[in-house]
Amino acid sequence: MHGTLAGDIGIALVNVFFLAVLFAAAIAIARMRSLFAIVMLAGIYSLVSAAWYVAVDAVDVAFTEAAVGAGMSTAVLLGAMLLTSRTAKPEKLFSRVGPMLVCVMTGAALIYATVDLPGLGDPNSPVNSGVGYTYLQINWHDTGIPNVVTPVLGSYRGFDTLGETTVVFAAGLAVALLLGFGERSLAEMIRKEDRTSLRQKPKAPEAPATDEDPA
């Protein structure tokens, strides 16, 4: 039997527990109207999925998800929520039925498709026996770096990562073009600095003026 679930009862319990928490968080997000609670639950969802990544051996992804999903995206969502509104309007009953039907049908189609997928943890599946396994084999000879994820990210797929970095840069630029570089806080900071500098040396602005007069 291939399944990770069957292999280790502890891992299986961890798996079931985390998936249950994820389900609870997702359903709560769907039912809630307070945007603050929704944003916080989205952070919890990310954090729990990070823990789940550790259970399925994806430590690098877990790290990223914990830092990005639970830290960064919660901060950005909170900032956006503060700038817009605190509560969402309740959905009308009519607008709930259609999406529900679409989602159930899409889910049924996807579940039907999983029947053809290889079982969980199958080492001979096309995913696991292809280029991923080759990376594991040749990595030590090529780069001598034990963590296989780093050379695949930086060396074998360096172009890919260059593109991703550029995308992140472009997204930062787009946000700055849409919202500015934080001018309001900048203005507050400059005003405060002016006040403190005036208090410290009140005659400072006049000194250059007297110098220039004779010249």
Binding site: E65, V68, S73, V76, A80, L153, E164, A171, V175
Partner: peptide, 30 residues
């Protein structure tokens, strides 16, 4: 070992995901 390739793809996808999410949120603010 587990397959490293999905890890690499998803690692970058998460970071790009938060960047695009913030572009969407900036549009919402506007």
């Amino acid at each position: 070992y587990s397959n490293p390739l999905p890890h690499v793809l998803m690692l970058t996808a998460i970071v790009v995901g938060v960047a695009t999410l913030s572009v969407g949120l900036a549009l919402v603010v506007r």
